[in-house]
Nucleic acid binder design. Sequence first.
DNA 1: GCTTATGTTTACTG
DNA 2: ACAGTAAACATAAG
Length: 259
Amino acid sequence: MPELPDVEGHRRTFAEHCAGRQVSRVEIPDDELLEGTSPQGLGNALSGNPFSEPRRRGKWLIAPTDGGPTLLFHFRMTGELVWGDEAAEYDAALFHFEHGTLRYRSRRRLGRIWFVPTGGSVESVTGALGPDATEVDADRLVELLDGRRGGIKSALMDQELVAGLGNELVDEILWRACIHPSTAVRQLEEQELRGIASKMHAILGEAIPAGHVPSGPTWLNGVRGEDEPSCPRCDARVRRGVVAGRTTYWCEEEQGSGP
DNA sequence: GCTTATGTTTACTG
DNA sequence: ACAGTAAACATAAG
């Protein structure tokens, strides 16, 4: 689930229930989850330091405390944040508050929570990240892709170029822009790059409030996983293949068969 | 048994 | 330095 819109949903969950609040107890059923501290160290550091307003950059959720350490959440493939009392087998971290519990749940246990001490560097954990996809307009995208070698899908998936886009979002963007995912960036006209930026914004504008990439009848995402998918726009065959190392869907009719 | 899965990192190759 | 691929991570589902 976790691409930019999903993480934004988790940010809203955190903001609604945890911002301005003081953790009363931390419980870490899976201590492989924690990077940079121990369950006890985390508990100590969070006592007396209420969370402030969380922010998001790309697929990272950044949760600072007032004057204390900052927590960084990355969800990888199957992580999520859930508010409530319903326990699940893969609850890996529980943040108990007086009014309820925030659960970091991670079925495949790939996600992590990083601990950044007061005054520490968030960037040293996240590494270099490009501008958040929500802040990239057409001019900026053209600039970012100038001189880029390789294919358009791998470029858009590169978090150092643009932060937040994942496999499903990129397929959706290129499908709406009618561009084959393997197309070399250098072969794209400026107008095509502007089209990509515009579709990216339209898609994010719908996906962010939803908290995920929608899979309704007008979305390519809706045919993902089907045996014989057909294009929601033109009904032609949707192809499935591997591009940039990831399972990729595209409409053979509208996006072509590739370079 | 096999394949596949929304992400990232590492190692290797060109 | 820049890109691409493959494998690894851990687990479930078909």
